[in-house]
Write a protein that binds this DNA or RNA. Structure first.
Length: 524
DNA sequence: ATGTAC
């Protein structure tokens, strides 16, 4: 269903009691009220269980309202148990049923879990590996480096990984996550300490992952995949918060490596399997939802437990995937620079998931009836701790200093948040902001967000031209399996990552720490 | 995102 979006901006004076000057924006039949700078609220009405919020500047809101994002955001508020408010982040765009750049915090006892609100690429995420090299150390060696990385790190659609193995080993990977990699010499203890959840979700249930999914994973452990996934060597160009950058071990001109990929065919198969099962078994709930793509399993049901266990297992698979790519990257740097990776200090800064669902306890505000409301709502009279399935789809956990889940190395400054931009733009490291728990269930943006579809991108750009331009004009060396992928991922198909990050920083949900700029990039 | 789609 496509709907024509019409826009009008009106200023209401003295309406709604209290606010003397409230800006209201209308997009089709969706109304957004400006609460304050960068905060837009879609009031609860009709079948909505809660209001929704869009956290965006005006230019980003124009882009967000350009596709079905707002409609999907409103639909998601009808999921049973949706708590306080549904969230759209500054990089939001439409996805399968639920916006990419969305957070849905759903009661884990009385609500539901919805695979579409987590995404097909379970634990698609990003990690940053540091080095003690500077840009000067690497100048002149860019092509040798990009060639060596491309030759040694499997990428592209289909099979071929760092290890090719059997179903029993896949099962162990699903069960133990990066601990498996540690035992087999692909990781060191320190890697586990610098990964979200220490690289292992204890709730993983490999028995809930189908044989078909496991088979797809056998030859994909340690592979980038295709689409927007990449490995990029970058240099730190700007430092915004010196004290936090110190705690993270980041300085200007330092070379770092960004690895962006997910759970490949295995995670995709887990999502497909459970969407089908849930659609069938919970057709009654599905019939009440405004979009089939939001299919959900009621909390406590057999399928909710099985999907959660299988999804957690796929999360572990993705972490091992990024770990094996890290291992290969260290080997390549050893060969190119003639020193051990330990001497090159190729330590993991952090690894964050961008597509994930997790049980977390959050303090929520409640009104006089005990209903959860946004924390700054005038109706809030008390707070309660609730256990929630926090669905983050194209959203990064951004826990501030003090939250127990933040690894001890960063507990005093806040969790590192890694936000990749497009291949011509560079990326950011942020830290979890003090207001993230209050506004976004401890989350912020995950990237620049697409501006146009892959098909449209291929009509606008030709891969070879994009590649030549990046090299000649920006000294960025790109190597890919397919020219089409370069066109699909051309810098021009993405929103402005600087604007996305500016909004995150100004909202206080994720604070700017450093910015990076690409040196070379390999992709599917 | 993905052995692009029952």
């Amino acid at each position: 269903m496509t709907e024509r979006v019409t826009e009008s901006a009106v200023t209401l004076l003295g309406v709604g009691g209290g606010d003397l000057n409230m800006t209201t924006r209308e997009f089709g039949d969706v109304t957004l009220e400006k609460v304050r700078e960068h905060v837009w609220e879609m009031p609860r009405e009709g079948d909505m269980n809660v209001p929704a919020r869009v956290y965006a500047s005006e230019p980003l809101l124009e882009e967000i309202s350009d596709d079905k994002t707002l409609e999907q955001l409103r639909n998601s508020t009808e999921l049973p148990g949706m708590t306080s408010h549904a969230v759209c982040l500054p990089d939001g765009h439409q996805g399968y049923g639920f916006p990419v750049g969305g957070v849905g915090a759903i009661d884990a006892e009385h609500g539901c879990i919805s695979p579409g609100a987590i995404g097909y690429d379970i634990n698609c995420g990003v990690r940053m590996v540091k080095t003690n090299l500077t840009y000067e150390d690497i100048e002149g060696k860019e092509e040798e480096l990009v060639d060596a990385l491309f030759a040694n790190i499997p990428s592209g659609l289909g099979g071929g990984g760092v290890v090719e193995t059997d179903v029993d080993t896949v099962t162990e990977v699903l069960d133990r996550g990066v601990d498996w990699a540690l035992e087999h010499g692909y990781a060191v203890e320190d890697d586990l300490r610098h990964c979200e959840d220490e690289g292992m979700r204890p709730d993983a249930d490999p028995g809930a992952v189908s044989a078909e999914a496991k088979n797809r994973g056998k030859n994909q452990i340690g592979s980038l995949g295709s689409g927007n996934h990449f490995l990029e060597v970058q240099r730190v160009t700007d430092v915004y918060r010196e004290d936090v950058a110190d705690a993270y071990g980041l300085t200007e001109n330092q070379i770092v490596v960004l690895i962006h990929c997910g759970s490949r065919g295995l995670g995709h198969q887990v999502c497909t399997d459970y969407l089908r099962k849930i659609e069938k078994r919970h057709g009654d709930l599905l019939a009440e939802l405004p979009d089939k793509e939001l299919a959900a399993a009621p909390a406590g049901s057999e399928l909710a437990e099985q999907y959660y266990g299988a999804m957690c297992a796929a999360i572990n698979f993705a972490w091992v995937n990024r770990q094996l790519i890290t291992h290969r990257t260290r080997r390549v740097f050893e060969r190119v620079f003639g020193d051990s990776w330990e001497t090159l200090e190729m330590d993991l800064l952090y690894d964050v998931a961008h597509n994930i669902g997790k049980k977390e306890v959050h303090e929520v505000s409640v009104d006089a009836n005990g209903t959860a409301v946004p924390n700054d709502s005038p109706d809030a009279v008390d707070t309660e701790n609730r256990e929630l399935y926090v669905h983050r789809k194209g959203a990064t956990r951004a826990f501030p200093a003090g939250r127990p889940e933040v690894p001890s190395a960063y507990r005093d400054v806040g969790q590192p948040v890694i936000i990749p931009g497009s291949m011509g733009a560079g990326s950011y490291v942020l830290r979890g902001g003090d207001r993230s728990l209050e506004l976004t269930f401890g989350s912020t943006a995950h990237g620049a967000g697409r501006l146009m579809s892959r098909t449209q991108a291929k009509q606008e750009f030709w891969g070879g031209d994009v590649q030549d331009d990046l090299e000649e004009m920006n000294q960025i060396y790109v190597k890919a399996e397919s020219g089409a992928t370069i066109a699909e991922e051309a810098p021009g198909v993405y929103k402005d990552v600087d604007e996305v990050v500016r909004v995150s920083d100004e909202l206080g949900i994720g604070d700017k720490v450093v910015r990076t700029y690409p040196v070379c990039n390999i992709k599917g």
